[in-house]
Design a protein around this nucleic acid. Sequence first.
DNA 1: ACTAAGGGTTATAGTAACTATAAGGTCAAT
DNA 2: ATTGACCTTATAGTTACTATAACCCTTAGT
Lengths: 145, 145
Amino acid sequence: MMSEKSYTVGRLAADTGIKAVTIRYYEKIGLLPKASRSESGYRLYSEADYSRLLFIRRSRGLGFSLDDIRELLSLADRQQDSCAGVDAKVEQQLEQVRSRLKDLRAMEQELERLSACCDGGAIMDCRIVETLSGEAAHNRRAKCS
Amino acid sequence: MMSEKSYTVGRLAADTGIKAVTIRYYEKIGLLPKASRSESGYRLYSEADYSRLLFIRRSRGLGFSLDDIRELLSLADRQQDSCAGVDAKVEQQLEQVRSRLKDLRAMEQELERLSACCDGGAIMDCRIVETLSGEAAHNRRAKCS
DNA sequence: ACTAAGGGTTATAGTAACTATAAGGTCAAT
DNA sequence: ATTGACCTTATAGTTACTATAACCCTTAGT
């Protein structure tokens, strides 16, 4: 007797913080099911779609790829199965994040070192340029920390 | 009287650790100058090309984009100019890296928290799935640290 | 001289996760 | 009726490569 409330794509976008274009894109790649349509052809979304989108958004926030999320969603859909698969994916993602952290920390250190190297002279005397050019650490005591 | 030694693309690749395809790609997008050619059409590279490639590789290692590197190279080429531009770019990159670090650290924390949540039951009881589904922190004392 | 392996050459398409653009249809309000 | 804000589609661009195909060159071995 009462129809469920439905969202247009723009409404869903506003409510979830995911842009309308992106929502359509998710539909196109099959991450979201095809939305039902109004008479005039507008997409109409249900509460279930809304939840699914939130799931996607949270997962993206944790750095999962869309392919990972596709898997997560299908794992999460099998309510009575073990959650070992989900747990494994979280673990895997954690490792990946840590590995990227390691790389970035190394970059940060090196950039800090370089940054401390510059004393504002000309390019030809610039330690930064020297370092980037590959004349690795030889005598950088003089001007660098 | 003596011609400089020159590298083929594969040799340069082996020496710099940048793949031959990538070297050709760098030439195509103008990051490397057009290489001279042997009679049969093979690319021939000089020491200068070698240095330039090393510069690119080190900069990539610091997370600079190819566009940034293009700028860095052109800055570095003006030997008598001030190195302020280079310094600024390093500073900028440092900021970017730090911002990405911040994001990743947040992801790491949240993933750690999630990972600790799983007690190996069924999906329908899984705290991870619950959390991802957006039912934010309500009563997670029970099973989560 | 012939051949096969291991170089090199080009052009084109695919990757991830969108973003931008164009060209148009719909809806609510004035 | 017209404006403005929404919706629709399709296509191309982004980053930094990687993969593929189809072909040419060089060199070592028989």
